[in-house]
């Protein structure tokens, strides 16, 4: 089903992730939880070759990068998790010759059917975000499934029906929900925090959004005091004027 479903209809469900770059500490929990679930889940296995050798190479659906951004006082270190963004205009889907890549009409999740993928890798070329990883041994393309085998899974308790990465993230930097619903918690987060698209100029219209690092703390002090005024200019030493103040403060 290589043609993209029409996602412009009002009320169209667009499931995706919102990743808070202001909160992510780069702990890699999401990457490993993803690996752990998915190597036994829908896209199983996520092969690791030469796992104990000199040149291990494995399939991961989520990777956390470390960047430095900005200069001088504004410079920051940013940990940057990267997985499939479940784009609305997903060229990875339209280029697929077999229909193995498809975007689900019901919720917009972009998937690869492991039974029909021929492993031509073209979809990975079409993805600007490097989100697809080819499994050399299985001969098929692997990608984030948005944990489609968790989020609707009747065998899991309701609270656990979330992507493995979201469920694991210790800081709560990952949020899952319906970005098609303007009133959903994730949509509100995106509007409050000015969440943005990666590489909007390429026109893929990612569903996943990134919340940028805050430049200043939203919290106190609102007007940071620059320095404290010293107490009374007693003629004595600092110590004596301090204790004079103590005396006054304690009401002698």
């Amino acid at each position: 089903m290589t043609s993209l479903p029409d996602t412009t209809a009002p009320g169209q469900v667009k499931l995706g992730l919102v990743i808070d770059l202001d909160t992510c500490v780069g702990c890699q929990a999401c990457a490993v939880a993803c690996k752990e679930w998915n190597t036994q889940g829908y896209p199983a296995p996520l092969t690791d070759e030469d796992p104990y050798g000199a040149d291990p190479i494995g399939v991961w659906l989520n990777r956390v990068h470390g960047y430095e951004s900005g200069e001088g006082q504004a410079a920051r270190t940013v940990h940057f998790p990267r997985s499939c963004l479940h784009c609305e205009n997903a060229a990875c889907v339209t280029v697929c010759p077999t229909g193995a890549s498809y975007k689900r009409r019901s919720d917009g999740i972009v998937l690869v059917d492991p039974d029909t993928c021929i492993g031509c890798k073209l979809c990975s070329w079409a993805c600007p975000y490097g989100a697809r990883e080819y499994d050399y041994r299985a001969g098929v393309m692997k990608k984030c499934t948005l944990c489609v085998d968790r989020i609707y899974n009747d065998h899991l308790e309701a609270e656990d029906r979330q992507p493995a990465c979201v469920r694991a993230c210790p800081t709560g930097a990952r949020h899952f929900g319906d970005l098609g619903d303007r009133d959903s918690a994730v949509s509100r987060l995106v509007s409050e925090r000015a969440g943005d698209d990666l590489l909007p100029e390429l026109g893929y219209r990612p569903v996943n959004k990134y919340l940028p690092p805050r430049t200043t703390s939203a919290g106190p002090p609102p007007e940071p005091p620059r320095a404290l005024p010293p107490i009374g200019q007693g003629d004595g030493s600092l110590v004596e004027s301090f204790f004079a103040w103590v005396d006054r403060a304690l009401g002698a």
């Binding site: 190479i57 494995g58 991961w60 470390g66 960047y67 504004a74 940028p212």
Partner: peptide
């Protein structure tokens, strides 16, 4: 632009020190 972060952005840490498909292919 790829990260939406203020310029300049430079790589500090690799996501993984091991190789992967994207590094190899792209």
């Amino acid at each position: 632009m790829a990260t939406g972060l203020p310029e300049p952005v430079r790589q500090w840490e690799l996501a993984h020190t091991a190789r992967n498909f994207v590094m190899q292919e792209m």
